[in-house]
Design a binder for these strands. Structure first.
Length: 482
RNA sequence: GGCGCUAUCGUCUAAGGGUUAGGACAGGGCCCUCUCAAGGCUCAAAUCCGGGUUCGAAUCCCGGUAGCGCUACCA
């Protein structure tokens, strides 16, 4: 049985690199008919927060790729303790009483690689126990058998055959001085506990994998199959991170700014993976059909975004992919997503249910070809859903041209004799063009002024269509107020 | 510094010994047109450098360089 896990540390929001890892895990597992476990790696009590867990889960829900089980590492402490105990008893681990390094994050160059603290591996079992019982703090370290001169090897699903000399691996920590397990210990023990068959994670763990293999062996378990994904880099070329790149890379930002869950899934899946043909747009089903680990390449991918640019706050390609989804998904579904945003903005109008439903759907359908996010319906499309909308500078200019306002008022007067049946696109066009001919002005003058009066914008769908979309009542009101 | 990984248009990528090095986004132009989009057509844009191997190298090998990652009592 294929079982994969996605294991974020709840030390902040989940960024889109993590989301991509989740997507690839999910796709792989689902193709195999396997299970997906969400494992919250909250062993670092200092930095883990409840809010982060909430943010991660809500971000993941937004992707609409459901997982099967949720597991909290903090609730599995007894397994970790048992593992640590076992490693200590068998001699695979030892206590290190060396005080912590003063400034572990210091940038000073290391002259030679650190492998172990002097004197600690050689401590006799008795002395080690005595000092521990006396209350002297220690970290538990893995005793890497460097003297074996072994070359460690494994087959990575993505990077292929990997090897590393055991003598280059340092005695990594298994438990902190407060007794809590580190990532390496907890992760491996839990992978065993959860019967994980495939570990698919970021390439930043590629070198750690050798440590993990050593750990699995010492614990007497067969290591799972590993696959490492190329990393996502920010515009500056460094590994995507919440600290460095900020909330623009947060999964929840994409949700809040109006991405479609599967639109983002599509874009993210294209980073490091391709179908080997020219296709770029995939529904979830198509992705499920097409995705393959062998289509993943090994180079890191740069995500370009510009926080200060309203148009390109996300990667332009991400926006484009989302736009493609926006205009191809079922319009009813789309309307449903838009409703949520309207509700959130207090722009919800009860007319959108019942009789007005069809009108709303038709509006959404017309607007979707020129928008790329759900937010656009709220911002650029305000006039279609609400009577409160701003009038743009360019639109005002269109209204100020010639006798535009007078003509619009005349138009309003004429539409008063219309009813629901006669008020259709053809008749409106005839009326508008007729008025233009009558007064000897270009039709464009009235047309563009109409759009300005009706929507507050100089750009948008066909003006004749807008008349119908808004309905007779609103049209007359807005024309009169022009 | 040590170890590991990677290297094709600005960005995401295809081509795994023989192609005018293909596609997509973004950019330019044209068509369409009541505006803006969408859509269609089109232009510009790349094999990191140096050596091999080979009739032939983006592709295989070696060396350099660059980038990224790891080198924590973070994950």
């Amino acid at each position: 049985m294929t079982r994969v896990r996605f294991a974020p540390a709840p030390t902040g929001f989940l960024h889109i690199g993590g989301a991509r890892t989740y997507i690839f895990n999910w796709l792989f597992a689902r193709q195999q008919g396997g299970k997906v476990v969400l494992r919250i790696d909250d062993t670092d009590v200092e930095r883990s927060t409840k809010e982060a867990i909430k943010s991660i889960i809500s971000g993941l829900l937004f992707l609409e790729l459901p997982w099967d089980e949720t597991y909290y590492q903090s609730g599995a402490r007894e397994f970790h303790d048992k593992g640590a105990e076992r490693l200590l008893v068998t001699g695979a681990a030892y206590r290190d009483f060396t005080p912590p390094r003063v400034d572990p994050s210091s940038t000073e160059k290391q002259v030679s690689p650190w492998l172990a603290n002097p004197g600690m591996r050689e401590l006799s079992g008795e002395e080690s126990r005595r000092r521990a019982e006396a209350g002297e703090p220690f970290v538990l370290r893995f005793r890497v058998p460097r003297e074996s001169g072994r070359i460690l090897e494994f087959q990575d699903m993505i990077f292929g055959s990997q090897s590393r000399a055991i003598e280059d691996i340092e005695d990594f920590a298994l438990c902190r001085s407060d007794g809590s397990p580190t990532y390496h210990l907890a992760s491996c023990v839990d992978d065993v506990e959860l019967e994980i068959s495939h570990v698919i994670r970021g390439q930043d763990h590629l070198t750690n994998t050798f440590k993990h293999i050593l750990l699995f062996e010492a614990l007497d378990f067969n290591p799972p199959t590993f696959g490492h994904l190329p990393l996502l880099l920010g515009p500056d070329g460094s590994k995507l991170s919440k600290r460095k790149h900020g909330p623009v890379v947060s999964l929840t930002t994409y949700r809040d700014r109006g991405f479609l869950g599967h639109g983002l899934v599509n874009y993210l899946s294209l980073l490091g993976w391709s179908a080997k043909d020219d296709r770029e747009i995939f529904t979830l089903d198509e992705l499920l059909e097409t995705f393959s680990i062998s289509g993943i390449q090994r180079g890191n991918a740069v995500v370009t975004f510009d926080e200060s640019d309203d148009q390109n706050w996300a990667d332009p390609k991400a926006l484009w992919v989302n736009g493609q989804h926006l205009r191809t998904i079922d319009v009813e579904d789309l309307a449903h997503y838009i409703e949520k945003h309207l509700l959130a903005e207090d722009m919800w109008n009860p007319d959108f249910v019942g009789e007005g439903r069809d009108r709303m759907i038709a509006t959404v359908d017309m607007l979707r070809t020129r928008y790329v996010t759900l937010r656009d319906f709220i911002e650029k499309g305000a006039a279609y859903f609400s009577d409160e909308f701003a009038i743009e500078e360019k639109a005002r200019k269109n209204l100020d041209k010639g006798d535009a306002r007078t003509l619009l008022h005349e138009l309003a007067k004429r539409f008063k004799s219309y009813d629901e049946d006669t008020f259709n696109e053809d008749n409106v066009e005839k009326e508008v063009r007729g008025l233009a001919a009558e007064r000897g002005v270009k039709p464009g003058l009235i047309i563009n002024a109409s759009r300005a009066a009706l929507t507050g914008q100089s750009v948008g769908p066909s003006a004749f269509w807008i008349f119908i979309a808004l309905g007779l009542e609103h049209v007359i009101k807005r024309l009169e107020q022009a």
